[in-house]
Amino acid sequence: MTAVTAPRAVGGRWASQVLGEAGIGVALVALVAFFLAFAPYFGTSQNVRDIMTQITINTILAVGMTFVILVGGIDLSVGSVIALCAVVAGTAMTDSGLPTALAVPFAILVSVVIGAVTGFVNGFVTERWVVPSFIVTLGMLYVARGAAQQYTGAATIYDLPPGLTRFGTATFAGLPAVFVVAMLLVAVAWFVLSRTVFGRLIYATGNNEEAVRLSGHRTSLIKVACFVIGGACVGVAAIIYMARLGVASPILGQGYELNAIAAVVIGGASLAGGRGSVVGTLLGACLLGVLSNGLNLMGVSDFQRTMVTGAVIIVAVVLDAYRRRLSVRLS
């Protein structure tokens, strides 16, 4: 027993902490340094703002996805649900006849509620009938896409209130306003996950659901709540999308779910649940955004960019597994 209590080398503790938690951050800094050296215009403030704007939507989706993945679920429907949220909220703004000052908050409410409701359906079906969320949300992917197309008759909605689109290009303290929204969301999520009882139960449930249930907690409720949070984030992302692009189209968002999952996984989360952090997710989204932007500025062709992105995802996850083993050995 003294073996366990024996003091460890201080260097080992420090090294294991850096390796265990900041590995992805180190990779990101390295990538930024690389592009600063080789990609023209990469370091201009204009481009930094571009990157921030460009990662906003994926960051918001990935924050929601983090909650779902932490409880061992997955949400494949976000790309379709964002389209559904956008077209319904977009129509709410253009057709409701409300003045902009009322129409926009109303649309935000509509969008978040639709997102939350689809999330609830995903979570409820998953829990009530004990089926894999992979399958349920795959189904929702089709349902929401079809619903979005049905709702608009496949038309694109574009005459959105100028107030909203102005917000999409506005800056706040030098930062894109939409990015500020994403960062606020990240901060709130971080607080919830690390400082609240609910956050604690999310990690615990993802790690060992039965143990949490037998400790007197309703794990089903916790899991459904995570799906609802994930859905609500999609609703927020839909508003940001409309603010940024000025349109709501039923075909928008294809493949977004995979980008969001990639960000979460690069950020060090385990798809089995119980491990991950919203800060890691933010860094994962940054990594993907910086990579895409930097390669584009370097004039790398789109096909090669796609290949490099895929390779980086694989390398990131392999490195993550490797450093995790290393940090376990050091601890």
């Binding site: 990690y203 615990a204 790690n207 060992n208 039965e210 400790s215 491990r275």
Partner: peptide, 16 residues
């Protein structure tokens, strides 16, 4: 399988 949350701390397990 049913008692511990292995990836959480001793403190978190005890307060569960």
């Amino acid at each position: 399988a049913q008692g511990l949350v292995l990836d959480l701390s001793i403190a978190a397990n005890m307060s569960l």
